[in-house]
Simulated assay, not measured.
Amino acid sequence: MMPTSLLMTEKEMSRALSRMAHQIIERNKGCQDLVLIGIRTGGVPLASRLQEKIQEIEGRQVPLGILDITLYRDDWSLAVQQPVVRETKIPFPVDNKTVILVDDVIFTGRTVRAALDALTDFGRPRRIELAVLVDRGHRELPIQPDYVGLTVTTLPDEHVNVRLREIDGQDEVVLERPS
């Protein structure tokens, strides 16, 4: 068992997502021409929660999509022999929209790079912004999030685990350290 530290409680996660929703609305002067796309796996429930919070604030629903980046990763051939590809569901045009890509944690930036590559198969957004619950640093690519719930300093061998009630049955963010 790895030693862990609690970084965010359920309440802190909710507050961070509320703040991020307000920042998204403020930066975009409302939610006109705005779409949310969650990166599988953790980004999908977070995008859904942002969608709910934006609707509470603005009184209108922002379209929500799901993006699977498995075949766009630059490391998939190293990870497994047969990658498991899950459904991508973007049932709306992204052309000339502001796309908010949503993920749980940003680390090296490689997941986001893969998501950008995958997104271009669906059209040409006017702008793409990135929202992440946790930024843990250690970028290998020049990619920075626009909206961040929590910035935490980590060591490269530590792991940030975002637990979501939709997947794990509870909401919390923990830092796991090697023994």
Rank of each mutant, 00 (worst) to 15 (best):
M2S: 14
P3F: 12
L6M: 15
M8E: 00
T9G: 10
S14I: 11
A16T: 07
A16I: 08
A16N: 09
R19F: 11
R19M: 11
A21Y: 08
H22S: 12
E26Y: 12
E26W: 09
R27Y: 01
L34D: 08
G42A: 04
V44K: 05
R49G: 02
E52N: 14
I54G: 02
Q55N: 15
E58K: 14
G59W: 11
G59A: 12
R60D: 10
I66F: 05
D68C: 05
D68Y: 04
T70R: 06
L71V: 03
D75C: 00
S77M: 11
A79D: 07
A79K: 13
Q81C: 01
V85W: 03
V85L: 03
K97R: 15
T98N: 07
V99F: 05
L101E: 06
L101H: 00
I106A: 06
R113V: 04
L116E: 04
L119E: 00
L119D: 03
D121Y: 01
R124P: 11
E129W: 04
E129F: 02
V132M: 02
V134K: 02
E140G: 11
P142I: 06
I143R: 02
V152W: 08
T153C: 06
L155M: 14
E158N: 09
V160A: 01
V160Q: 05
N161P: 00
V162L: 07
R163L: 15
R165T: 10
D168K: 10
D168M: 06
D171Q: 03
V173I: 12
V174F: 04
L175E: 01
P178R: 13
